[in-house]
Structures are given as structure tokens and as C-alpha cells.
């Protein structure tokens, strides 16, 4: 595939594929729209970008993007991209990055730690300690294991749990609007 990508024909084919993907709204590899639960969670991530204040040094300049990273398997498909497309928060455009490895996490502001990484949550949050990255997950005991924000499905509704200590030590400020609806652990 890497070899093919260099040819114009493959590029055209790639473009065609991506157009098809966009038209159908589904992933041709068989992955359909994300489950409704993940459609909602994608919108929560978008909301977090608005309700969290990052320290100025988290951005290289006033127009630098707010990056939402997905570490591990992507449960959102293109839905998260659709959610943030064209959106800006305080002049910062929102972008989505898919990250395979922890070392890929560089200028990321919101990091969704996917279920595929659930075995090493402690390791990931320890590596990010003190950096202004809002860690979000939906796996068991995510907050107890050092994560900042857990999205949990309770009686078919998405609840937000916030672990305030790591949030504060990372220099992040969570709006009281969000705290008001969240289950806050101090």
C-alpha cells in the first residue's frame, strides 16, 4: 500500500474511495455509523473542548487548533470529525487526530483513551502527568486509575464523572457549567 500511494493512479483511487466513504457515511471496511452511544460521546468530547480552559502555553498561537486525540481503536468513525468540522472555540479550530502510540501524543488537548488501551491507563496518565491534556475515557475505574473524565453509561444515559485532582494539577480549568452536571470527585 505504501508503494502504491506514490502512484497517481493510487492517489486517484484513494480520492475516489474517500469520496465514496463520505457519500455513504460508512466505512467501506464494514464499520457502520458509530453506535448511538458513541455519537453522543463524540458530542460530549466537542463540549469538553468548550468547557475546559487550557493554559496559554498549550497553544503555539491564538489560531492554533484544539486537538482532540483518539488513542487506540477509534469507536467514533467519521462522526467525531463531522461533529467538530468548521467549529472553533475562542478562535481555535477543532481538529481530530488518531494516535496509535503514546509517543504520538504531542500537541493534544483532549485525549480519548480508547477501550483498546484499557490495560495501560495508569501508564498513559502517568506519562501525561502535569501536561495540559484532558484525559477522557469510558472504561471501568477510569477515574480511579488516574484518568480525568469518565463517560459512563448509566441506565442508558451518559453520565460525566470528573476527577478534579489531576485536572487541576495539569493546569486545566473546568467550567462550572460542566461541573454542575458532572459527578465530581474531589
Amino acid at each position: 500500500m505504501a508503494l502504491l500511494k506514490r502512484t497517481g493512479a493510487a492517489r486517484l483511487a484513494g480520492l475516489f474511495m474517500s469520496i465514496l466513504l463520505e457519500i455513504s457515511g460508512t466505512d467501506l471496511l464494514g464499520q457502520a455509523n458509530p453506535a448511538p452511544e458513541y455519537q453522543l460521546k463524540a458530542v460530549f468530547l466537542y463540549n469538553f473542548a468548550q468547557f475546559v480552559d487550557w493554559p496559554p502555553q498549550a497553544f503555539s498561537d491564538a489560531q492554533a487548533p484544539i486537538v482532540i486525540g483518539i488513542l487506540g481503536d477509534d469507536p467514533f468513525g467519521s462522526y467525531l470529525d463531522e461533529t467538530v468540522r468548521g467549529e472553533k472555540v475562542n478562535g481555535h479550530p477543532l481538529v481530530v487526530q488518531r494516535l496509535r502510540r503514546l509517543s504520538d501524543v504531542k500537541a493534544v488537548h483532549v485525549l480519548f483513551i480508547s477501550e483498546s488501551e484499557s490495560d495501560r491507563v495508569e501508564q498513559i496518565v502517568a506519562a501525561l502527568r502535569g501536561r495540559p491534556v484532558l484525559t477522557v475515557g469510558d472504561t471501568e475505574d477510569f477515574c480511579a486509575r488516574g484518568g480525568m473524565v469518565r463517560l459512563l453509561n448509566e441506565k442508558n444515559k451518559i453520565r460525566v464523572r470528573i476527577n478534579l485532582e489531576p485536572v487541576k494539577s495539569a493546569g486545566l480549568a473546568v467550567s462550572s457549567k460542566l461541573l454542575r452536571v458532572a459527578d465530581v470527585q474531589r
Binding site: 453506535a35 448511538p36 452511544e37 455519537q39 453522543l40 458530542v43 460530549f44 466537542y46 463540549n47 468547557f51 461533529t83 453509561n153 442508558n156 444515559k157 451518559i158 453520565r159 460525566v160 457549567k177 460542566l178 454542575r180 452536571v181
Partner: peptide, 16 residues
């Protein structure tokens, strides 16, 4: 559509 909802409404949406 979902983006129009406030966080208070979002936590109230039944995923089913």
C-alpha cells in the same frame, strides 16, 4: 442536532 443541546440536556438523552 446533538450539538444544539446543552450539557444538561445531553446527560438526559436516552441512548436507546
Amino acid at each position: 442536532t446533538l450539538k444544539k443541546l446543552s450539557v444538561e440536556q445531553l446527560v438526559d438523552v436516552d441512548v436507546t
